[in-house]
Structure formats: C-alpha cells, structure tokens
Design a binder for these strands. Structure first.
Lengths: 195, 195
DNA sequence: ATTATCTATAGATCTATAGATAATGC
DNA sequence: ATTATCTATAGATCTATAGATAATGC
C-alpha cells in the first residue's frame, strides 16, 4: 500500500485548509480583507465559494486562520531575540513583499470600527512592544546609550518597522527598507560605521 | 435683501460638496474606502445616494476630493517647517483621532492592487520625505549629530510618525504618541532632558 | 434654464444556507 | 457513515443610470 493511500482524511483536510489560508493571504494582499471575496479565494484553490465554506464556516473564520498562521511565524521565543537579528528580519521581510503587503493592508483596515482583526492587532502590538523592550534591555541594560529606557524605545522600534514597510510597499525603488532600518539601529546607539 | 439671499447657487453647491467630503472622511474612518458606501455618506448629509451623485459623478470622485482636501491642510510651505514644529504637529494629531484614522485606513488600503489612492500616497510620501530632509538640513546641516545625512533620516522620521499612529489608534491608553515622538526627536540629536 | 433632489431600477456582487451527489474510510 | 464538493438560491448590498419633479435664478 503506497504512502499516498495511507494519508488519511484528516491530513488531507488539513492540507486543504492550509491551501485555502495561503490563497486567502494572497487575495488579502491584493484587495484587503473587506475587498477579498470568498469566491476569489476559492477559485485559487479550484473550489467553488460554497465548497470553500465546507472548510471554514464563515469568511471571518478564514481571517482567523490567517492570523493564527501569522502567529506561527513569530514562534521564535521572544527571549531568543537579539538586536542584531532584527536587521536580518527586516532584510528577510524585504524579500517577501506579498506577506508584508497582506499584513500591512490588514493593519490599516484594523483601525476601522468593528474590524474583525482589531483585537488581534491591539493585543499583538502590546506583546511585540513588550518583547522588543526585553530585547533592548538584554542588549543595552536599563538605559540605551542615548538615555532612553527600553520601554520607551520599543514603540519607536516597532513604529519604524511598520512605517518603513508602507513606504517601501508603495515605492520599493525609492526606499531601501533594510538599509533604513539599520540606520535606525545606529541611532539607537550602535557605533556609526562608514555613514 | 438679506445676506442669505445673496448667497448664489455656486456657493451653496460648494458648501454641499464640502459637507459631503466631511461626511466621507467620517465614513472612511469607520469603514475604510472599500467599505464605505455612498449611501452611508449620503445619509449623513441628509441626501439619498443618488442625490449625492449629483455632486460627485462616482465614488472615486469623492475619494479624490477627500485627498485634495488633505493636501490643503499641508498647505504650510515646506520651507517654513522647523524640527520643533513637528512635535507640535504630532501633539495636534493626537487631538484628532478621526482624521488620523481616516488616513491611516486609507494608507493601509492603498498598498493593495489597483487602489485608487495608491498613486496619491506614493507621490505624497516622496514629497514628504523630501520636505523632511530639507527640514532636517535646516536644523542640523549636512549631518545629524549621530552622523546620518538628512536624506537617510527623513524616511525614518516619516516611518515613526505613521507607525506610532497605528499603535496609538489601536490602543491609545498604552501609547503616548506625542511623548514617543519627542523621544524620537531626542534620538535624532537633541539634548536629552530629564529622561 | 439650471440646479437639486427624488423614485425606480439595472446589473453586479457577496455571504451564507439548503440540499443533492459522489467519493472515501471503517 | 462521513467527507468533499456541487447546484440552486435567498437576501443584502452596492454603484451607477434614467428620468421625473420641484425649487432657484437670470
């Protein structure tokens, strides 16, 4: 009995769900969540809109799965982060415009009223600020070279990452996102080298 | 003949258009552009959806008017900006969550494909980066205290403003946007005072 | 005459439900 | 039996056009 036959229904169903989430990521990048239709997502995985609803009961359930997937990526424990890895993260992001576009579009929408991702992002940013403060504390102690505390610097760090993403998505040729982010890290207190 | 009678049709029509633009600002803040229906905007000014279309031929025309209005506010000539005024601007913004929400939602949507505000934001950010570089040059000369050039600092400055807005809109109690922005200005090279 | 506004309506969508049919797995 | 998928369809919207009616301004 070949391996393929041994693959049971549960596994196949989960693969289908994963395909749908991947397709949703793409469609959201192109049209946002409100603009993304289930039919467009379904088409990408070769299903009808009603067929897709067999795997997720509502449109919002698809979004929840998308956000859950996002949390998987951040699975690197906050305690293992180091400041020098942040530059690599931004560099990595610069190679994945699609995914960055998805979450930049979602973040923008999420500030509107009753948006189903609003609570997610609110909570997420709270956690990210906290993690970043911890990372900065590990690197610099209770004060950065410029005198700011890690807690006060963290929101700036997060803001720069997000803000640069928008500028870069809109005009990748004009904005060197990784270089700009390294400049910011320099501002935080690293030695300036060949500026 | 009282003044009211002297108000001619052109003026009244322009006032109506301004009302519509104001209502559109609100509805976009609540639902984004794609989520904003002409009917919802019309209702706010006491018109039917079809009545509104007498003043603007299409939904996109309303958006264009909204973006044009935004340009009016920035009417302060770039050459008159100074670094210390930026902190006041952010403080002022913190008192107008509605308008900030409108444009944060629009910026987020604008990175999606074929969004009618995309070109506007691309061009706007290019100009804003340029203005900010000029402002920084006026304040610091060709190098900031930390060694960066104004041109390399400008995208960071803009990113911090935008990024802080998202964090603040999502969780105003956790993010003191004006204070955080002042912290950033401190990083840029001002003397640290009672940190 | 022109302007403002309305009713009616076409034509597209969109989400979600109901229920049928085919395929898969104990 | 359960799972996967489809067709049919209800019920809401949404934008935009057509054309009527009332009010305003030379």
């Amino acid at each position: 009995m070949p391996y393929g036959d041994a693959m049971n229904a549960r596994v196949r169903s989960e693969e289908r769900r994963a395909e749908i989430v991947r397709a949703a990521l793409e469609v959201i990048a192109e049209r946002g969540y409100r603009g993304a239709s289930l039919a467009a997502v379904a088409e990408r995985v070769g299903l009808t809109q009603q067929g897709l609803l067999h795997y997720f009961p509502t449109k919002e359930a698809v979004l929840v799965a998308v956000l859950k997937e996002r949390d998987q990526w951040d699975a690197v424990p906050a305690t293992q982060w180091r400041v020098d890895l942040l530059a690599s993260l931004v560099e990595y992001n610069a190679m994945r415009p699609g995914i960055i576009q998805t979450f930049s579009a979602l973040l923008g929408e999420s500030v509107t009223e009753g948006h189903p991702a609003r609570a997610y992002f609110t909570e997420r940013y709270r956690q990210v600020r906290e993690s970043m403060a911890a990372v900065l504390r590990t690197a610099y102690g209770d004060r950065l070279p410029n005198g700011l505390t890690p807690e006060r610097t963290a929101p700036l760090l997060v803001a720069v990452m997000d803000g640069l993403q928008y500028q870069w998505l809109l005009d990748p040729d004009s904005v060197d996102m990784p270089a700009a982010f390294r400049d910011f890290l320099t501002l935080l207190g690293e030695e300036a080298e060949e500026l």
